[in-house]
């Protein structure tokens, strides 16, 4: 028997190129469930992405109109798409390296402007595709290809960063919390302004093996055993939260959306008699 959700995918290229046990496939799977449950016509979705393993979730696998752009520029392209096609669901799915590293500036400014995009950042804590170089989210001390003696830098807290920058919806979940993640994806897609989910995901090949977790399931168990509800972190010390995955909703606020403001200005000038 075939999975009915395969109708959303480009099936001629399945199975995926993802390594066995990779979290990218879980994100793709849950995203298909979400599109199906929300009854969104894929013709009303425009997927935009950059470069990396996570960037393969929307392209080539998900079957919708797609812009597969240069490394780090997904949000810049998506902004243009949303301005011209405000009625479409413009959805970006890409990695930590892509969206928070080379594309980090686009990310914070899109949040500040509150552009009506949905962004799913697949945080596998590494540049997976290129063989495991350090990324802005790699935890301190972890050895990577480019930090063989351990990462000397602290990591970005992406959900907190995007929330502080002004996004109207922000959440963090891991690939272990499948039901929470599914609900959050729905909320993010239905929310009007800039909607962002940091999805902590396993990369057994380029990250897991460097932290003693060789299989995808090992990192999933780490997510299971070390996730902590954001609501329970008040009053907790930084040391207590080290190596924990703080999950939950970080922001949900009403702000006017960027393209709406643009259209209001246009309307003002349309009304000026010539």
């Amino acid at each position: 028997m075939k999975n009915e959700l395969l109708k959303y995918l480009r099936t001629d290229i399945l199975p995926t190129e993802f390594c066995s046990g990779c979290g990218c496939g879980t994100v793709l799977n849950i995203f298909c469930h979400v599109v199906d449950e929300l009854k969104i016509n894929p013709d009303d979705i425009i997927m935009v992405t950059g470069i990396g393993c996570s960037s393969w979730i929307p392209s080539p696998y998900f079957s919708a109109d797609t812009l597969h752009t240069t490394h780090g520029r997904a949000i810049a392209f998506a902004t243009g798409v949303k301005v011209m096609k405000p009625d479409k669901h413009v959805i970006v799915i890409a990695g930590d390296g892509d969206l928070a590293g080379i594309g980090g500036n686009h990310l914070i400014h899109a949040a500040r402007r509150n552009i009506g995009l949905t962004v799913f950042l697949v945080n596998n804590y590494i540049y997976g595709m290129t063989g495991g170089q350090v990324s802005p989210t790699t935890p301190s001390n972890v050895p990577t290809t480019t930090t063989p003696y351990g990462n000397t830098e602290p990591a970005f807290k992406i959900a907190e960063l995007v929330s502080a920058a002004g996004a109207s919806y922000v959440a963090r979940w891991t690939t272990y919390q499948v039901f929470h993640l599914k609900k959050a994806m729905k909320d993010a897609i239905l929310n009007k302004g800039f909607s962002f989910i940091e999805i902590c995901s396993q990369c057994p090949t380029s990250y897991g093996k460097r932290v003693g977790m060789r299989e995808g399931i090992d990192q999933l168990k780490d997510f299971r055993d070390n996730s902590i509800d954001l609501k329970k972190t008040a009053g907790m010390k930084d040391e207590e939260l080290e190596n924990k995955f703080i999950v939950g909703k970080f922001a949900e606020r009403n702000r006017t959306e960027f393209t709406e403001n643009l259209r209001n200005i246009n309307r003002k000038f349309d009304e000026v008699p010539v």
Binding site: M1, N3, L9, T16, G21, C24, T26, N29, I30, L220
Partner: peptide, 15 residues
């Protein structure tokens, strides 16, 4: 439904 949702290959179907 955990297995169906978490499977990275969409290979598990719960009917």
């Amino acid at each position: 439904m955990i297995c169906e949702l978490i499977c990275p290959e969409l290979a598990v179907i719960i009917k």
